[in-house]
């Protein structure tokens, strides 16, 4: 075998090894989480953990219901705020804004997507928390410290904006010009064209963008940790403090890691995060594939 062929062979194998290593890590993490969360499941059924409402590790009570509810509320409200606003601004930037403005806005939004979340958390802590406490909660007739689910959801929405906007702009821009022309040339207005053609043609990628936004929102830790209040109780309103799965791990790992069963409980929380993100990603691929088959152009 000559040198060139040998180099070719080594290169190929190196790439294979790198790929195997990465995939193996993924499985190792999964297996680690699975085994380490076993301990807490010996004395408590999974059902109890998921649905009982008291989280009090000192009393060996590991009810995750309040935390799961907190996570669903924060993620749900964040997406509820983020999706319509992101879509509207993405459409504006992609289809309506003059190209000079577009050229400034696009990199700006990409930069926003890259800002570390602790920066958002700090801004939320300094400005959004007092605003919620003094203005927004009283406006709804509720007393709040400002450290609450609502504040966390809003800052999460702000963090999700640039991701969804950026991906949506990309998919709107990918719609062929001729497709828009086809719609305009039968006498459709610009809005009709955007709504019925551009939007439809990019449905699969918009769904993908939203799922990615969900992933970010669901797993976001530090910014939420700074403003949610960190109290694992079932919230009485969105202005009550709460806790999310990711934020729980961040705030408790220091104090809980010394006792095996507590550690195991946190590992279970991590496993839940892992599995949910996995399921949503698989779901995303599945939806995307179905939608693509239907809406190719």
């Amino acid at each position: 075998m000559n040198k060139r062929k040998l180099r070719d062979l080594i290169g190929t194998k190196l790439m294979l090894i790198a790929t195997l290593f990465v995939s193996l890590l993924f499985f190792l993490i999964f297996v680690l989480l699975l085994f380490r969360s076993g301990l807490v499941l010996q004395d408590n059924s999974l059902f109890d953990i998921l649905f009982s409402s008291t989280w009090n590790p000192d009393n060996s009570q590991f009810g995750l219901a309040p935390i799961i509810i907190g996570t669903i509320l924060v993620t749900g409200i964040a997406l509820l705020i983020a999706i319509p606003i992101s879509l509207l601004s993405a459409i504006y930037i992609a289809e309506y804004a003059p190209w000079k403005i577009r050229r400034i806005l696009r990199p700006f939004i990409d930069v926003l997507a890259g800002v570390p979340s602790v920066v958002y958390g700090l801004c939320a802590f300094l400005f959004l928390v007092p605003l919620t406490k003094d203005v927004i909660a009283p406006w709804f007739g509720v007393q709040s410290t400002g450290l609450c689910i609502f504040t966390a959801a809003v800052i999460l929405a702000v963090m999700v904006f640039p991701i969804i906007i950026s991906l949506c702009i990309e998919s709107f821009n990918a719609v062929p010009l001729a497709l828009k022309e086809a719609s305009l040339s039968v006498g459709a207005t610009k809005w009709e064209t955007v709504k019925k053609v551009v939007f439809r043609a990019s449905t699969p990628s918009v769904i993908a963008a939203i799922l990615l936004g969900f992933g970010r929102a669901f797993g976001e830790t530090i910014a939420i940790n700074m403003v949610i209040g960190g109290i694992p109780r079932i919230p009485s309103s969105v202005f009550s403090p709460g806790e999310t799965l990711a934020s729980l791990i961040a705030s408790k790992y220091g104090e809980l890691m010394s006792i095996p069963v507590h550690e195991s409980a946190l590992m279970l929380v991590a496993l839940i995060l892992f599995v949910v993100v996995l399921v949503f990603n698989i779901l995303g691929v599945f939806i995307l594939r179905r939608a693509k088959r239907r809406w190719t152009y």
């Binding site: 001729a178 086809a182 040339s185 006498g187 019925k196 053609v197 439809r200 043609a201």
Partner: peptide, 29 residues
């Protein structure tokens, strides 16, 4: 402008059916 465009159908180099059914394509306009 849409009224001007409505007076003139356009056929492009490569066919671009709209991302919908055959029926909906004709029904679109």
């Amino acid at each position: 402008i849409p009224d001007i465009r409505k007076k003139m159908g356009l056929i492009s180099q490569k066919p671009y059916p709209l991302p919908m059914s055959i029926y909906e394509n004709v029904a679109y306009g």
